[in-house]
Amino acid sequence: MQSTGGPPESLESLLHSGYRYAISLTHHEAQAEDILQDAWLAVLRAQGPHTKPYLYTAIRSRFFNINKREKLVPMTSLDEISEPAVETQPEDLAIFGRLEDESLTIALGTLRVVEREMLFLSAVDEFTAKEIATMTGMPRGTVLSLIHRARHKMRDWFEKRDRRSNHEK
């Protein structure tokens, strides 16, 4: 994640991106705002580069420090995560075509923090697994596995919801 290949973005755009990344971690907009402010001040104090990887690292570090201290985020050993291949499911289109914002909020809330984070980094920022691995310090295979798992969980969640909905009819 040292370089994203794209043009440098404006500070405004960078801050919006940082806010969204913080939401992917906290799943709570007010907390995301607080963490972003804290991280941004740290970036300025350190006279660090105004880049997405640098800001994201500051946000990530603050989020995990706070939550580790308060024991709010269950930490799972990376060894516990298997590494299946990433594949695109044909039913994704049908299932996710029906997603609404509210449903997505609930579905994303069922993911572990690290799964939601990986999904965000790959889907929204379109970082490659290698770039994500560089930023987070995780093996590339683990990153791929987490993305796969996150998408699988979301698909399951919506399938179950649709089954329940059809059953009630």
Binding site: R20, I23, S24, T88, D92, L93, F96, G97, L99, D101, L104, T105, L108, L119, F120, S122, A123, V124, E126, R151, M154
Partner: peptide, 11 residues
């Protein structure tokens, strides 16, 4: 892919 597009739009 559709999943990514929906997630992208959400955030």
């Amino acid at each position: 892919n559709p999943i990514n597009e929906r997630i992208q739009s959400y955030y």
